[in-house]
Simulated assay, not measured.
Amino acid sequence: MMRRWGLSLGLLTLALLIGGVRLAQGDRGEAVVWLVVYGLLAALVSPLAFPRGAGAAEARRRSAEDGRPIVYWRPGCRYCMMLRLRLLGVAGRAHWVDIWRDPDGAAAVRAVAGGNETVPTVVLADGEAHINPSPAWLRARLR
């Protein structure tokens, strides 16, 4: 659980430390900037920025039923975050699996990525896997 939130908590801690120092030095404006900017970054890299996902087994079952792709991701991954942000509006049409939360999901990624946990990895309903696909490619499959 802590590993999933580590980057977000680290960014918040940094914001509080530097913001506190700036505030103590009398620079309120810079303190607010640090708190706002790093607070937003912490929210973006947190697990909250992604849809609540099912486990890998449930995602595979649902994908077989509805034909939607499965996106394997992990918190703090900048490529996952960029993919998620560029899919605004259609990201909910995929089944999202956090590989740090689901060991079966991590194993599924290792099976198609040569033993590595390279994310984002997208697996289509027919079993075809794509490692770090372009957002445009995935968006076309989600429509």
Rank of each mutant, 00 (worst) to 15 (best):
Ala91His: 11
Pro120Gly: 06
Val119Glu: 12
Trp96Asn: 02
Pro133Arg: 05
Gly114Tyr: 13
Val123Arg: 08
Ala91Thr: 02
Leu88Gly: 15
Ala106Asn: 07
Trp100Met: 15
Ala94Trp: 00
Pro135Thr: 13
Val90Pro: 04
Pro103Met: 03
Leu124Lys: 05
Ile131Cys: 12
Ala108Asn: 06
Val97Phe: 00
Asp104Val: 15
Ala107Met: 04
Val109Lys: 12
Gly115Asp: 11
Trp100Ala: 14
Ala107Asp: 10
Arg101Val: 01
His95Thr: 06
Leu87Tyr: 03
Ala111Pro: 05
Trp100Thr: 14
His95Ile: 07
Glu128Cys: 02
Val112Ser: 07
Arg101Phe: 01
Gly114Thr: 14
Val119Cys: 11
Ala107Lys: 07
Thr121Asp: 09
Ile131Lys: 07
Asp98Gly: 06
Ile131Asn: 09
Gly127Gln: 03
Gly127Leu: 02
Val123Ser: 05
Pro135Phe: 15
Leu87Pro: 08
Val119Leu: 09
Ala129Cys: 12
Ala113Phe: 13
Pro120Gln: 05
Gly89Met: 07
Arg93His: 08
Ala108Trp: 07
Gly127Arg: 01
Val112Lys: 05
Ala129Gly: 09
Pro103Thr: 02
Gly92Gln: 00
Asn132His: 08
Gly127Asp: 02
Thr118Pro: 09
Val109Pro: 12
Gly115Phe: 02
Asp104Cys: 10
Thr118Asp: 13
Leu87Asp: 03
Ile131Gly: 12
Ser134Arg: 14
Arg101Pro: 01
Trp100Leu: 15
Arg110Ser: 11
Gly92Asn: 01
Arg93Trp: 10
Gly115Cys: 07
Asp98His: 11
Gly92Trp: 01
Arg93Ile: 03
Glu117Ser: 14
Ala107Phe: 03
Thr121Cys: 14
Asp126Ser: 08
Asp104Gln: 15
Val119Met: 08
Gly127Tyr: 01
Asn132Met: 10
Pro103Arg: 03
Asp104Leu: 14
Pro120Val: 07
Val90Leu: 04
Gly105Arg: 04
Ala113Gly: 13
Val90Ala: 13
Trp100Asp: 15
Pro120Leu: 06
Gly105Phe: 05
Asn116Arg: 15
Thr118Phe: 08
Val123Ala: 04
Ala111Lys: 12
His130Val: 09
Leu124Gly: 01
Arg101Asp: 02
Asp104Gly: 14
Leu87Thr: 04
Pro103Val: 05
Asp104Trp: 11
Val123Met: 10
Ile131Asp: 07
Pro120His: 04
Ile99Asn: 06
Arg110Ile: 04
Val123Thr: 07
His130Gln: 06
Gly105Ile: 02
Ala107Thr: 01
Asn116Gly: 10
Leu88Glu: 11
Pro135Leu: 13
Val97Trp: 00
Asp102Gly: 09
Leu88Asn: 10
Ala125Cys: 01
Ala125His: 00
Asp102Asn: 11
Pro133Gly: 02
Ile131Arg: 11
Gly92Leu: 01
Ile99Gln: 10
Val90Asn: 00
His130Phe: 10
Ser134Gln: 14
Pro135Arg: 14
Ala91Arg: 15
Val122Gly: 00
Ala111Ser: 12
Ala91Gln: 14
Val97Met: 00
Ala94Lys: 00
Gly92Asp: 03
Ala125Gly: 05
Gly92Lys: 00
Thr121Lys: 07
Val109Gln: 13
Pro133Tyr: 05
Ala107Tyr: 02
Val119Trp: 11
Ile99Thr: 15
Val90Gly: 00
Ala136Val: 13
Pro133Gln: 06
Pro135Met: 13
Arg93Tyr: 08
Pro133Lys: 04
Val112Gln: 06
Ile131Tyr: 05
Gly127Glu: 04
Val123Lys: 04
